Structures are given as structure tokens and as C-alpha cells.
Simulated assay, not measured.
Amino acid sequence: MDYIKKITSPLGGITIASDGKALTGLWFDGQKYFGEALSKEYVEKDLPVFQQTEEWLAIYFSGKAPDFTPPLSLKTTPFRKNVWEIMLKIPFGRTMTYGEIARQVVQQKGLSHMSAQAVGGAVGHNSISLIIPCHRVVGGNGSLTGYAGGIDKKVKLLTMEKIDMSSFHVPEKGTAL
């Protein structure tokens, strides 16, 4: 059984999901791939993991790095899980490129190569936004692309984390990573 809770944030409504013990989803309402990890049947209920998540979000939206992570359950493919685990290690106030993540996957898995686009697909399907900080992943050319919650939210999140935005830009539609 899946459980959800709807909350508000400075950037709009958020829906969080759990299997009863760990967080399985965190989406901005209306974002691309909303509820992808959620089963068809779910119940709205308050749970301890939701209270922990709300505490994490309160610290985060105050402009500080939370010093804990709520328990997470990553319901996804092994490849996406690998990419999401790399994203979990991107520090507050820092960014990483799709290519850097691809190089880490190559190194960890002993592969000969990995495309940044493959990583981009895994990043885009992140079902636990903010906590797994996909907003901190940027194009190698400085483009702020590929945020399922919307580029405007990505810019606000990076700015809130006091990331120097001077070297980043929003690409024109149709521009590659």
C-alpha cells in the first residue's frame, strides 16, 4: 500500500509518497512524470517519514543544508538507482554535469563509455525531487536543462543554494545537452 501527503512549499504544492516506512516519492504538483513511482491505489495519511520529510524541507527552504536524509526507497531500475545514488552525493550549493555523472557510472561499472543523454533520462525520472537533488545537475556547456519541475524552479532552487549563476544559461528549445 502506498501513502501520500500533500504539502505546500515556497515554490508551490508538493506531494510526497511512502510505502509506510520510507519515502518513495516527492514531486512538485503537476511536474513531468508526477507520481511515476506511485501505485494506482494509495491513501492520504500522515506518517513519521512524512514528518521527517517536512522537517527536511523546512530546513532546506530556509536556505540551509539539512544534516539528515529521511529514509528512502528507490523504486526504479538498477541504472536509474545508480545515477540517483550519485546525485544524492552532490553537496548543497554545488552542481555536477550529466557528463561527470556518466563518467562516475563508467568507472563504477567498468564500462567503456556512457552517454550524457542516458544519464539525462535517469535524472529526469528522479521520483524523489529535492532530496535526490536533480536540480543540481547541469549541462556540460553550462545549460540549465532537463528539470521535470520546470526550469524556473531549477533556477530558484540553485539561487536559494547560493550557487553562482553567472556561468549558467537556459538553452533555446531544441538545443542538445
Rank of each mutant, 00 (worst) to 15 (best):
G30I: 07
P66C: 08
N126K: 01
V119Y: 02
H135F: 13
S127Y: 04
T97I: 06
Y60I: 01
N82E: 13
D67C: 11
S73K: 10
T145W: 04
G139N: 09
D67N: 14
L144R: 07
Y33Q: 10
N141I: 03
S115F: 02
D29V: 14
T145M: 10
G150W: 02
S112W: 08
T77R: 05
T97E: 10
S143L: 09
I59F: 05
L88H: 00
P91M: 01
E44P: 06
G146N: 12
K32W: 14
K40C: 11
T95N: 07
G63H: 05
F34S: 12
Q31N: 14
Q52S: 09
L11M: 05
P70S: 01
T97G: 11
P66T: 07
H135Q: 12
K81S: 10
R94F: 15
V119W: 01
V49S: 02
F34Y: 15
V123Y: 03
E100K: 03
K45T: 09
L11C: 01
N126R: 03
G63K: 03
Q31R: 08
S73C: 09
S112N: 15
M87H: 02
V119T: 07
F92I: 06
T97D: 09
K75W: 13
K40P: 08
K81G: 04
A118G: 14
S112R: 15
G35L: 03
I14M: 13
T24V: 03
G139C: 11
G12V: 08
K109M: 11
H125G: 11
G146H: 06
S115E: 10
F92N: 09
A37S: 11
T76V: 04
I86Y: 00
V49Q: 01
C134Y: 01
G13L: 06
V106R: 08
A22V: 03
D19F: 05
F61W: 13
F68S: 12
M96S: 09
T69E: 10
G146I: 04
N141Q: 11
T77V: 03
A102H: 03
I131R: 00
V49D: 00
G93P: 13
K75I: 13
A122D: 10
V138R: 00
A148L: 05
E54P: 00
L23H: 01
V106W: 04
W84S: 04
R103E: 15
L26H: 01
G124E: 05
A22M: 10
L111R: 12
G149H: 00
S129N: 13
E44L: 04
L47F: 12
F50S: 06
S115M: 06
I16E: 06
F50L: 08
Q117A: 15
H113F: 11
Y42S: 13
Q117E: 15
F68Q: 11
Q51K: 14
S115I: 00
A37D: 09
R80W: 05
L26T: 01
P70G: 02
Y33M: 12
F34T: 09
T77A: 08
D46V: 07
D29T: 14
M96V: 10
F92G: 08
L38Y: 06
V119F: 04
G25M: 01
Y147P: 14
H135Y: 14
S18N: 04
K45E: 15
E54R: 03
A148T: 04
G149F: 00
L72N: 00
L57H: 02
T53F: 08
F68T: 12
K89Y: 06
G142N: 06
S112F: 10
Q51Y: 12
A116S: 15
